[in-house]
């Protein structure tokens, strides 16, 4: 039974590390869209603060 927990812990850590090295492409594209609409919008509107 102890073995299971060791395997689980390793799997959990492994999943985190594996995923962590991937660049979140879709989220980066969304961030780019948000920022570009902000900086290129007609003057007078505030720069957004929230990532979505």
């Amino acid at each position: 039974m102890k073995k299971i927990w060791v395997i689980l812990a390793v799997a959990l850590l492994g999943a985190c590390q594996t995923v962590d090295v991937f660049f979140p492409q879709e989220s980066a594209t969304k961030a780019a869209d948000r920022i570009i609409s902000d900086v290129w919008q007609p003057a007078g509107k505030p720069v957004s603060k929230e990532p979505k």
């Binding site: 799997a11 999943a15 979140p24 969304k30 900086v39």
Partner: peptide
């Protein structure tokens, strides 16, 4: 458990809500 851990790690959004980012945004704008 694997699925849960994958979600916790994979759903990271790109953050851009820092003073450094905002300062550059203001200049570009």
């Amino acid at each position: 458990l694997l699925a849960l851990s994958f979600n916790a790690c994979a759903l990271e959004n790109i953050r851009f809500d820092t003073p450094g980012v905002r300062a550059v945004e203001v200049r570009i704008k």
